[in-house]
Design a protein around this nucleic acid. Structure first.
Lengths: 154, 154
DNA sequence: TAGAACCTTGGAGTGCGCTCCAAGCAAGCG
DNA sequence: CGCTTGCTTGGAGCGCACTCCAAGGTTCTA
């Protein structure tokens, strides 16, 4: 399939996830319901992603039904990961556009990835702060046991 | 300033944040716009929080204007932290109700906190997974430099 | 005492990310 | 052949978390 097969190393894959029962490249013509099973997204959402430009144009069968490839699944994996970071769909669409526009958008894509990386780090830090608060409250509840009228003071 | 001055140890405080220019307890009768400045929330949001039961009943001046206390600010700090975890507002309202209902809800509150803690840990793990993907892509972009037609394969 | 700035309310409106609907075509099965 | 199951489309609808509005009362500064 793709470009890298011939090159030996595949650096730019978004795998990371199990890649459960995918078919080999060349045989990868998944129906929308198979993709639903792979990704956990609904068919509605998959079609909507396509409408808003978050997916590339998906291959069609001779009767016009969608046939997704392994590459499409990889892209959906990435989208899923980015979604977890809280990145707005509009920003992901922007990234998808950059990819479609070709190599001259290289720099912009690189920047976008680095910015996102920083955002994720910040997000993790925020969560750690929250975790500290929760741990403090939890040990308060655990210790206090009964003389806990003071909980009102939070 | 604040509470800790007088009591020495306060376990169940949600501080963690700077507690910037708060007035001492007893003098703590903040207007809504002061709370806006403290929290970064809008006045609309503060009033809405109250309407939906996410805030306790707020003291009023003799003419009916809201006067927030240090304790209210502490609560808003906690709410802010929980919001960062993605906890739905409805769940936070539930917690607020438990607090209002009194000590007999101790166990349920404890469980809720522990569940939330687990959620936060899971969330951090997800983000770390995403970070790994981003780092892989970033180093791909950094290395590739120019022969990057293959980026299409993501 | 004037004027600006701030506060009050219930209810309506907004933006995001889906989520669903209706009407119709297509493929597989007994 | 009829039936079920799955897919297609554009557009409408939904739930969440705000966000704003209109119309009026209050508080502060000069």
């Amino acid at each position: 399939m793709t470009v890298m097969e011939t090159t030996g190393t595949r650096i730019d894959t978004c795998a990371g996830t199990p890649q459960q029962n995918r078919r080999p490249d060349g045989d990868d013509h998944y129906t929308i319901s198979e993709v639903v099973a792979f990704t956990g997204l609904t068919a509605h959402t998959l079609r909507w992603y396509e409408r808003i430009g978050l997916m590339p144009h998906i291959d069609r069968s001779h009767t016009g039904q969608r046939r997704y490839t392994n590459r499409d699944l990889d892209w959906l994996d990435l989208v899923g990961k980015l979604r977890l970071t809280g990145m707005p769909v509009a920003d992901m669409v922007r990234y998808a556009e950059l990819v479609r526009e070709g190599d001259h958008t290289y720099g912009e894509r690189f920047q976008l990835l680095k910015t996102t990386r920083e955002d994720v780090l910040a997000r993790i830090d925020e969560l750690r702060g929250t975790l500290a608060v929760l741990d403090r409250k939890i040990s308060f509840y655990a210790d206090a046991g009964h003389g806990l009228a003071s909980e009102r003071s939070r």
